[in-house]
Structure formats: structure tokens, C-alpha cells
């Protein structure tokens, strides 16, 4: 049966409270602008109803300044809210550098999460309270959307590309997580729980679950894959086939065959594995086979994590 009626969803982050404040203030302004219209409209209709003797002389049919006034003033008021809402939105695209990266892969109809140190889970996502978390997300099949109402945030997961979302949940608790983009038959069953834990509890949970998924950290799993797939056969200085060296490539500029340059990021590394001919590094021939049919998205994530970690090793030298 019904669990009662709840008029306002819980807010698990500072951002969520900001969104509530924004919609509350905007709602107040909206009422301020509309109530006079509704009141005047009803009052005019009743006061000037047919057969009633009232003064109808000098009924105006145009007035330029009135028109300009009621177009421009509300527009400027709304523009103020536009600036506010856009600033809040831009914050969502500036994750702090120390955010914990968690990989998310969605498929019909489940959520798969990979923590940086190897713990894996399905449909439930454990995060520490008060620490920024960055989700690096992709989909195996159709478009899904990661939605946690308590965070007031959602982001689509698009096959073939990475999208990301970061948050800092400061209130421990269990919050529903839902798929918001229609994704087929069991769309409505594609839910889970975001579990925000005090940091010490999270550490304990991680310790218990580290071996729950792949053994070792994500980067270690990636290193093993790198070896098993024979990537080093080409991508190493000693190899007979000439391919770009990959040590420490993450975050560095890469010159491309078509003359452009880009910074090697998650998207570039993943594309280079799945669609190797999309952006070919300058000075190399486009001969790498695609691994699109060989690797699952989680394995690509592991490889990318490994390449990232090789940057960290280089930097620490």
C-alpha cells in the first residue's frame, strides 16, 4: 500500500539545496508575475460583463510603452535567474581535482560500478560522505540516464562516449538511484541505491569488498590486460611494429596525422582502443585493429586506468 505522501524530496548535497533555493525563489517570482494577470482577467471579465452598466469610455486598444514594459521587465527579471541557474550548472562541469573517480557502465537494465581500487558492485553505489566523487560513465547498449533525485542531478550515458557527473554528498543515508532515459522493456526496473557512508565506514566497506571484484586495483587489472592482449607487442620501444609508446601518455598533448593536436583524455584513449582509425597519431600508419568486438567496457576502463597510472609513475620519477 501507499507509504504516505511526501511533498519534497530529501537533499543529500549542497548542490541539491541550492537547486531547491533556486526553484523556490523562481517559483515565488512566477507567482508574483502571474497572480495579477489572473486576478485582473477575472475581474475584468466580471466587471465588464455584458448587460452591466459601467463606464466603458476611452477603452484603449494600444499603448507602446505598456507593451515594452510588460515585455522587457519580466524578461530582465528572468535573466537574473538565468545567470543564477547557469552558474549552478557550470559548477557541475568543474569537478575538484581530488574527486574519487568511479567508472560506471550501464546496460539494459543494470548499473555496474568500478571503484578505483578494484571494488566492483552492481546497482548499489557506496560513496564516502563529504568527499567529491566523479563518475566516468558510458553505456554498453542504448542511452541511459543516471539520476539521483536527492542530488538533483542526472546525466545521460551514451554508448561510444564518456560522460561524467560529479557530486559531493554530505548527508549519509540511502538514496534511490534511477534510470531517467527510456531504455526499453524494463526501464522502470533499472534502479539502484546510492549509499552515502561516513568516511570511516566507507573505508571499512572498501576493505571488505576489495576482493569482491577483480583482484587488485583497476589499474592493476588494466596492466594485466595490457600484457595479456599483447598491446606491448607493438606499443613498446623494442617492438618490430612501430606504434606510439604509451607510457605516461594520459594528459599529454598528442599530435595527430591530420595536423591537429589534442590532449589524451579518457575519451581519446578509449576511442583509440575501440575506433583506432578515428584519430591517428602523427607519424604512424593506421594499422591498429579495433578492439570494439573483443573488450567489454569495464575492460576498456581498466586499460585506461592503467595508462593513467603509468602517468602517475612517470611523474613520481
Amino acid at each position: 500500500m501507499s507509504a504516505g505522501i511526501e511533498l519534497w524530496p530529501p537533499a543529500a548535497s549542497h548542490h541539491a539545496q541550492q537547486v531547491d533555493l533556486l526553484i523556490g525563489s523562481f517559483g515565488a517570482m512566477v507567482w508574483l508575475l502571474t497572480i495579477p494577470v489572473f486576478v485582473l482577467m477575472s475581474w475584468f471579465a466580471i466587471r465588464y460583463r455584458r448587460s452591466r452598466e459601467v463606464n466603458r469610455d476611452h477603452a484603449p486598444t494600444r499603448n507602446l510603452w505598456v507593451e515594452v514594459g510588460w515585455s522587457v521587465i519580466p524578461f530582465i527579471l528572468v535573466l537574473g535567474f538565468y545567470v543564477w541557474a547557469t552558474m549552478l550548472f557550470l559548477d557541475l562541469y568543474r569537478p575538484p581535482p581530488d574527486a574519487i573517480p568511479i567508472h560506471v557502465v550501464a546496460k539494459q537494465w543494470m548499473w555496474k560500478f568500478q571503484h578505483p581500487d578494484g571494488a566492483r558492485e552492481i546497482n548499489n553505489l557506496h560513496v564516502p560522505a563529504g568527499r567529491p566523487v566523479k563518475l566516468i560513465m558510458t553505456s554498453e547498449d542504448v542511452i541511459h540516464s543516471f539520476y539521483v533525485p536527492a542530488l538533483r542531478q542526472k546525466q545521460d550515458l551514451v554508448p561510444g562516449r564518456y560522460t561524467s557527473l560529479w557530486f559531493n554528498a554530505d548527508k549519509p543515508g540511502r538514496y534511490p538511484l534511477r534510470c531517467a532515459e527510456f531504455c526499453g522493456a524494463d526501464h522502470s526496473a533499472m534502479g539502484g541505491t546510492l549509499i552515502v557512508m561516513p568516511p570511516q565506514d566507507y573505508a571499512v566497506w572498501l576493505g571488505r569488498n576489495r576482493d569482491g571484484g577483480m583482484d587488485g586495483t583497476l589499474a592493476q587489472a588494466g596492466a594485466r590486460l595490457f600484457r595479456d592482449l599483447g598491446c606491448s607487442g607493438c606499443h613498446s620501444a623494442a617492438a618490430s611494429v612501430k606504434a606510439p609508446p604509451l607510457e605516461g601518455i594520459f594528459g599529454r598533448p598528442v599530435a595527430l596525422a591530420d595536423g591537429g593536436t589534442l590532449i589524451a583524455d579518457d575519451q581519446y584513449l578509449s576511442d583509440s582502443i575501440l575506433l583506432p582509425n578515428k584519430q591517428v597519431a602523427a607519424g604512424y600508419r593506421p594499422i591498429m585493429p579495433t578492439y570494439g568486438n573483443v573488450l567489454a567496457p569495464e575492460q576498456v576502463n581498466a586499460l585506461v586506468a592503467y595508462l593513467k597510472s603509468s602517468r602517475a609513475r612517470e611523474d613520481s620519477k
Binding site: D258, N277, K278, Q279
Partner: peptide
């Protein structure tokens, strides 16, 4: 735009 080299 997405595949400049491959397109050419």
C-alpha cells in the same frame, strides 16, 4: 567533424 582523417 568526428572522423576528419577517416572521412577524407
Amino acid at each position: 567533424l568526428e572522423h576528419p582523417a577517416g572521412y577524407v
